[in-house]
Design a protein around this nucleic acid. Structure first.
Lengths: 194, 194
DNA sequence: CCACTAATTTAACATTCATCTAATTAGATA
DNA sequence: TATCTAATTAGATGAATGTTAAATTAGTGG
């Protein structure tokens, strides 16, 4: 778990309004105006905070008619709680491994993508392949529903063979498909090289 | 819930320098200048951050001659990690109460309405009265503007005394009136029995 | 296409905050 | 007491942040 992510999480949680939102959503999804009402704040303020919470994947949303219902990503929070515990157990070697992993990851990205952001080819090695896919998939929004056509267009920005890559996204649990609509899985479900 | 404490903790952890300090101290106590050196910052900056970490009890210090060694309070961090997990646990009592409440509500509705859907009479007990009103008001569309005449007609489907009931709708914040036009309030504003 | 609703963006404001340099304090020791 | 070292405070500065009213956008349904 990299530093930025930990910091971003705690910074997001370090605000009374946002903690109250999270606590509210623990009892079930709510829409924006309901949250505003319960907290005595205005809708723009809620939007502001929701954005921050969504940025760190702690909430996602589903639409019903005109109304967006905001849901809590509970597993993400649990995962961060674990990370907090691990932070204080960590010994130097582990920190070093983490740093090395990030360096390696960056090298792989640099190798397989052109400066214009195109994927040169799909890595054969599973580990590298996953790094590449994870990099691509991070440009998708969690909670958003992607029709197949839109997903294809997104992938095409990286590589022409959208069919193969789209299939890989499913196989490796980055996304799931329902009635021809694609959506991101929570990050904990993504395939990881051990 | 000790909201302030939770917020203070995450706010303190929501800074890269402080996370790095915590990570450093996980490998053992250090004194101020050592921390400053390792992080490439000046001693006053370290003092600044140490103060914040000490405020939330995540750090304590021991003196050896002129030098203060800062120690990590690991159990405090573990405890906060647990708190994070509990934040998102659904309160089961609340869920159970909800279920029981619904059963009770159904009984009241069955008692006070005929099979044809007519309100036999207005309950005297506040709690039951509110259940009955809420039941009626759920047949109205949120966001729709009701002229008084139309609202009267709607209420009459349940009971002849539309004037009393219409007044109760306002008193209990199910609806509000503006220029003789009635409209539903958001559900959060409705009167609820405590 | 039009009317409506929910959500978001924009612009403005006051507040908080991380960091530095320079000056000061606190404690140890000779 | 005088001196050394480590830590803290004070003050300044620039950046980030929480909130709101007003305007705008996006999506739904007639």
């Amino acid at each position: 778990m990299q530093l930025d992510r930990i910091v971003a999480f705690h910074k997001a949680m370090g605000d009374p309004t946002r903690i109250r939102i999270v606590a509210l959503l623990a009892n079930g999804p709510l829409h924006g105006q309901a949250i505003a009402g319960k907290l005595g704040l205005t809708p723009p303020t809620i939007t502001h905070h929701i954005k921050k919470l969504r940025d760190i994947n702690v909430i996602f949303e589903r639409r019903d008619k005109n109304t967006l219902y905001f849901h809590l990503n509970e597993s993400l929070i649990k995962q961060q709680a674990k990370t907090l515990g691990k932070l204080i157990e960590k010994k130097e070697e582990e920190v070093e491994n983490m740093v090395e992993l990030n360096i390696e990851r960056q090298k792989v990205i640099d190798n397989f993508f052109t400066k214009e952001g195109k994927l040169k080819n799909i890595p054969a090695q599973r580990k590298k392949k996953l790094m590449v896919f994870e990099y691509m998939v991070r440009g998708l929004k969690s909670g958003k529903k992607y029709p197949e056509k839109e997903l294809n267009e997104y992938i095409t920005k990286f590589h022409e063979d959208y069919a193969t890559i789209r299939r890989e996204f499913i196989i490796n649990h980055y996304m799931y498909r329902e009635n021809g609509i694609y959506e991101l899985n929570p990050e904990e479900m993504w395939a990881k090289p051990e």
